[in-house]
Design a protein around this nucleic acid. Sequence first.
DNA 1: ATTGAAAAGCGCTGATT
DNA 2: AATCAGCGCTTTTCAAT
Lengths: 155, 155
Amino acid sequence: MLADLDAVDIQILTILQYDARMTTKEISAKTGKSVTAIHDRIHRLEERGVIQSYVALLDRNCIGKKLTGFTTVKLKEHSDTILSQFEKEVVKFPEVMECYQLTGIADFLLKVVIADMDAYNNFLKNKLASLPYVGNLLTSFVLVEAKRTTAYQIG
Amino acid sequence: MLADLDAVDIQILTILQYDARMTTKEISAKTGKSVTAIHDRIHRLEERGVIQSYVALLDRNCIGKKLTGFTTVKLKEHSDTILSQFEKEVVKFPEVMECYQLTGIADFLLKVVIADMDAYNNFLKNKLASLPYVGNLLTSFVLVEAKRTTAYQIG
DNA sequence: ATTGAAAAGCGCTGATT
DNA sequence: AATCAGCGCTTTTCAAT
C-alpha cells in the first residue's frame, strides 16, 4: 500500500498536485529526466494508485454555493449496523462533501457546502434529521476559509 | 461573481470535476455539441474563474499519511490582529490541509493530515501550541473516511 | 531504467456556411 | 453555432543502449 517513491517521483507528484495540466515536456525540463522517463513514471504512479484521479477544482461562489458548514452528528444508538446505515444514507446527499466517523465527542463530522442559510436549515431539518437514529446535531459555519488544499507534502 | 451557466456549461463542469483528463472530443460526444463549442466554453469557464485549477489527487496511504485529525483552536484573545496573525502562521504548516475561521464554540478548525499519532502529537505540542495566543486545543481523529469529494453538484 | 526518434492524436486557430 | 482544414505540440509507442 505504501509506495516507495524516489526523489523524481516525489517531484512529479508535487508538480501534478498543483497543476495537473503541466506537460511531460515541462516536467522533463524541471527534473532533468527525459520525456519518456517522465511519461513512464506517471503511468506507473497511476497504475499503482498513487495518483487516484485528475479533477477540475471550481470556485464555489461562481456556482452559487455561498455557505460552508461543519455539522457534528451524534446517533442515539451505536451498533455497527446503525452506524453504517447512517453512513450509507448520509453520503448520498450531494450537499455533504465530506463525512468522517470520528473519535471523541461526536460520531460523525460532515462538511456541507450549500447555497445559503435557508438551504442549510432545510438540509438539517428535512434531510439530515429525518435519517433514523439521529440524535444531537451541532453546526458551525465557516466565516473565513483561510486555507484549503488537496496537495500533500511528500517525503 | 456568480457566473450564469447554461445546461451545457453545467454538463462540462460536472464532467471535469470528476475527470479532468476527458478530451474535448469526448465531451463533445457526450453533450452533442461541436468540439470547438466545447473548447470555447471550457476556455471561457477558465477565464471567468469558474474553473480554478486542474489537480491530481493522490492516495494518502501511498505517501505515508496514515492519520487525519480535526483540531479546533481557541485563542486567548480575539482582536483582529491576533486572529489574522494566527491565521497567517498556521496556514504555513504543510500538515494543515484546511483552516477555517468558524462561528460557534471554537475560533478555528484545522484539518490535519499526517504520518501517525506520534507526528500528530509532535505537531500539536511543538508547532501549533507554540504559536502566540493559542488557548484550548481539542482534537478528534478520523476513524473512517466515509466520503470525501471535491465535486460540487451544480444547478 | 533511460534515451531518441517516429507515429498517432489532441489542442488550438482561422475560415466558411 | 457548427464544420472543416491546418499547424504545432503532446502523448504514446518502439527500438536501442
